[in-house]
Structure formats: C-alpha cells, structure tokens
C-alpha cells in the first residue's frame, strides 16, 4: 500500500514543490547522493511528462502522485488524466537517427535510473521503484 497521496494541478511549480518535499524525505532516510539524484531526476521527468504530454497543461486536469518512502526503497505511482500512450510507439532516443532530436529522453532516463518501471494498460499511470543500496 502506498502511504502518501498528493493531487496537484497541471502546474510545474506545484510539481517542483512536491519534488522538493519528496527529496527532503529521501535524504532524511539516508539515501546516498547518487540515489537521491536518481530519484529526483526520475520524479521530475515523470511529473513533466504527466503535466506536459498527459494533461497538456490543462488546468482542469490533475496529476495524482502516490508515494511510499521507506529506508530500503521508494515507490511512486504518477497518474495523469490524459489518454495514455503505448510505450512501443516511443522512438529510441539513442538510435543514430534520433540522437539530435530535442525531445523524447524522459522515459529513457526514468528507466535508466530506477530499478523497476511499469505503466498501466492505458499508459497514463507510471509506477517506479528505486531500491537503496546498503552502504558498506
């Protein structure tokens, strides 16, 4: 069960405030700088995708973020009110022909930095997990 739930408007400033709150909690749980960097980057990309591509900045639509921050792992579910998308239709940004396209790297970065990433069937809810590596 996810412990915290926040509903924000399709607004980047609200997203930033939520990111800062989450990051403070993550840092308070003893995650390394590298892990905190990864979590912040992934959450930022997920929220921007939800606001920009999912809700298309529609002020009447919201983004629902459920999260659970534990000492050994963090989990997020980020849902927008857009129609969703099919992951298979997103071009690979690292393919030679796409390298100089200015967009399309958000999902790739999320997948690179988080340990588990999945979408619901509609493609408008992203779930992701980052596990903490025990420090020697």
């Amino acid at each position: 069960m996810l412990l915290s739930k926040k509903v924000i408007q399709s607004d980047l400033e609200e997203a930033r405030q939520l990111e800062e709150h989450v990051l403070e909690t993550v840092q308070g749980c003893g995650y390394s700088d590298a892990e905190a960097f990864a979590i912040k980057l992934a959450l930022e990309e997920a929220l921007i995708n939800a606001i920009k591509h999912g809700n298309r900045y529609d002020p009447d639509k919201t983004v629902t973020v459920c999260y659970d921050i534990e000492p050994d792992r963090v989990r997020f579910a980020v849902a927008d009110e857009g129609p969703g998308f099919a992951l298979c239709n997103v071009p690979d940004p690292t393919a030679d022909e796409n390298l100089e396209r200015p967009c399309g790297r958000g999902i790739m970065l999320i997948r690179a930095y988080m340990d588990e990433v999945s979408y619901n069937e509609e493609g408008n809810e992203l779930r992701m997990v980052k596990r903490r590596v025990e420090q020697g």
């Binding site: 960097f37 980057l41 930022e44 990309e45 921007i48 396209r101 200015p102 790297r105 958000g106 790739m108």
Partner: peptide, 17 residues
C-alpha cells in the same frame, strides 16, 4: 550544475544545431 533534465538536454541540442 548538479541536476539535469531531459528538457535541458533538448535545449542544448537545439542550441548545438
């Protein structure tokens, strides 16, 4: 600069072009 995003990368790519 200690954080980065895909949007910032996009801006740099456009500048580079």
């Amino acid at each position: 600069v200690t954080n980065m995003s895909s949007s910032a990368l996009g801006m740099l790519i456009t500048l580079h072009k």
